[in-house]
Amino acid sequence: MDSVELRKDVYAHFGAAMYYAQCLEQSIIIAIMFIDHFPKAIKKYTSQNLWENDFDRFMDNISSKTMGRLINSLKAVDFPIDKVEVQLKDALDKRNFLAHHYFFERAIEITTDAGCIKMVDELIDIQTFFSSLETEINQVTDAISLKYGFTKEVQDSMMKEMMGEYRQTR
C-alpha cells in the first residue's frame, strides 16, 4: 500500500473513532433519558402533545451538552456508574484528544508509512474501547428501558419506520 493510501486509512479510522465516540455519547443520553427523564415525564403525562414537547425540550437540552457534562449528568442520576466510572473518564480523555490534539500530536507519524500503520492500530484500539463501553452502558439501559415497554420488537419497529421515512426522502 502506498503512502497516500495509508494516510487515507488513517483518516478513515479517525472518522470511525469519532463515530464510536458519538455513539457512546448517544448511549449516555439514552441512559439519562430512561433513568431520569422518563420517570419524571410519566408523572406529568396528560397528553401526547405535551409529552412530545417535553421530550423535545429534554433532547434539545441534553444534546447540547459536551461529553464531560453528559458524564456528570449520568453520575447525577441513578445509573450504576461505579462499574464504568474509570472507563468514562478515559473515554472523555480519548474523545477530547481525538477532537482537539490528535493530528497535531501525530504530525510526524502521519508522514511515514510506519507511523501511519501505528496510527491505524491506535485508532482501531480506540474504536474498540468506545464500542465496548457503549455496549456496557447499553446493557444497563436496555434492562431499564424494558420497564417502559421498549422491547426489541419495539426497537425493530421504530427502526423499520425510520428507514421507511428515510427512503421516502431520497
Rank of each mutant, 00 (worst) to 15 (best):
Y19V: 00
K43V: 15
N72R: 02
M67N: 04
T66G: 08
L88A: 07
F34L: 07
H37R: 03
D82S: 11
K44C: 13
L24I: 02
A31G: 01
Q87L: 15
Q22T: 01
Q48V: 13
Q87E: 13
F34S: 05
N49D: 15
A41E: 09
F34M: 08
C23M: 10
S73I: 05
K43P: 12
T66Q: 05
I62S: 07
D54N: 13
F79P: 00
I81E: 04
D56C: 13
V77N: 05
N53G: 15
I42L: 14
C23E: 05
D82G: 07
K40W: 11
Y19K: 00
S63I: 02
D78P: 06
L50Y: 15
K43R: 13
L70W: 00
C23S: 09
Q26N: 07
I32N: 05
I42W: 12
V86L: 14
D90N: 11
L70G: 01
M18F: 02
I81P: 03
K89D: 10
S47R: 09
I32R: 07
K89G: 10
S73V: 00
D78I: 07
D36T: 06
D54C: 11
N53A: 14
K44E: 15
D56M: 13
M18Y: 00
T66W: 04
A21I: 01
H37A: 09
Q22C: 00
L88T: 02
D36L: 12
F79Y: 05
I35A: 03
R57I: 11
W51P: 09
F55C: 11
K89A: 14
M33N: 06
G68D: 03
G68M: 08
I81H: 02
S64G: 09
H37P: 04
F58P: 03
I71Q: 04
K75W: 06
A31L: 04
V86D: 12
K89V: 12
I29P: 02
L24V: 03
T66E: 07
K65E: 06
N72T: 05
S27P: 00
S47M: 12
S73F: 09
D36G: 09
K40M: 13
M59V: 11
L70P: 02
D78E: 11
Q26T: 02
V86G: 11
K83S: 14
H37V: 11
L24W: 01
D54P: 08
K44Q: 14
I32Y: 11
N61R: 12
I62W: 05
E52K: 14
D90T: 13
E85D: 08
S64I: 01
I81L: 06
L88Y: 06
A76L: 10
I28Q: 01
V86A: 14
I42C: 13
A17M: 01
D54R: 10
N53E: 15
F38H: 08
F55R: 11
F34T: 08
A21Y: 00
D54L: 10
R69V: 08
